[in-house]
């Protein structure tokens, strides 16, 4: 079943900037999809259309087969949740527990159920001991985790992530991405993540949609998308560092490399083959 479909979606901002020009995408349930693109490629606009903050000028967006226009706001916010790029935008309650409870309370759940969901969400992001802490006393990575907990407490089927790893140190990036991947695997939540961190994609993401100037220029598994480095360069992207190294080894040093490795594991296997 399709979790999200965009059919011929066009969108322009009031100043006339055409942000999306005929987007067609289809994301199956339970998939971890990445929307890759340079700055101004339309990634954030696409996410804002998928969560209903913006309305397409033309075309339609379907959530689990239903047009977003026909889904009422209450049903939509429980199905599709968004984790913002800047945690300060999303964390508006004074304490961690109150912020996580915000969504479930608005869903009309009982106090007992809200309490259960808050505890479960805090446990999922490993912040159980921070429930009563004020938001401003948290570190940046903790704020990101609380954002995610707030979204998880609503138990949505689809989570949209707007550059969830921006401004994080390498350890923070790994920890957030591992957490998201585990949730995707264990709970079957569909994730759509906008990013321009190409190195993350082959490690964590099942499928990549590359946007350039509001158009989908590539769509497929990371291995397929990263096999065409010219297209990536024209979309203001690049190969992951490991892939780039092996591309140089292949093209400039004449090594026989069958499949371009994109992760450390793949590179290790390829190097073993080369050395044997």
């Amino acid at each position: 079943m399709k979790a999200i479909e965009a059919k011929e979606v066009y969108f322009s901002y009031p100043d006339g900037t055409a942000a999306l020009k005929g987007i067609n995408i289809s994301i199956p349930k339970g998939e971890f999809a990445g929307v890759l693109g340079g700055n101004g490629s339309g990634k954030t606009t696409l996410l804002r259309l998928l969560n209903g903050l913006l309305k397409p000028a033309q075309g339609d967006i379907l959530i689990e087969g239903k047009s977003i226009k026909s889904i009422d706001r209450d049903a939509l916010f429980t199905k599709v949740c968004t984790m913002f790029q800047n945690p300060e935008d999303q964390l508006f309650s004074p304490t961690v527990a109150q912020d996580i409870a915000f969504g479930p309370v608005n869903m009309g759940l009982s106090r007992e159920e809200v309490r259960k969901r808050v505890s479960a969400a805090l446990a999922a992001v490993e912040l159980s001991d921070c429930a009563q802490r004020p938001i401003h006393a948290l570190s940046f990575i903790q704020k990101k985790r609380v954002c995610l907990a707030g979204v998880l407490a609503m138990e949505p089927e689809i989570i949209l992530l707007d550059e969830p790893t921006s401004c994080l140190d390498p350890a923070g990036v790994s920890s957030i991405m591992r957490l998201l991947k585990n949730l995707n695997k264990q709970k079957g939540i569909t994730f759509v993540m906008s990013t321009h961190s190409v190195d993350l994609v082959p490690v964590f993401i099942d499928r990549v949609i590359v946007l350039d100037k509001g158009i989908v220029v590539q769509d497929g598994a990371p291995q397929a998308v990263f096999s065409d480095s010219d297209k990536l360069k024209s979309a203001k992207l690049r190969l992951p560092h490991i892939g780039h190294l092996f591309e140089v080894l292949k093209n400039e040093d004449g090594h026989n490399i069958e499949h371009l490795p994109l992760t450390v594991g793949e590179a290790r296997q390829e190097l073993k083959k080369l050395w044997s």
């Binding site: 969560n51 903050l53 706001r73 209450d74 916010f77 429980t78 949740c81 968004t82 913002f84 800047n86 935008d89 999303q90 508006f92 915000f102 969504g103 608005n106 869903m107 707030g150 609503m154």
Partner: peptide
């Protein structure tokens, strides 16, 4: 931004 985030959480 805060208003949008609040709307998205119902």
């Amino acid at each position: 931004a805060t208003y949008e985030a609040m709307m998205l959480r119902g």
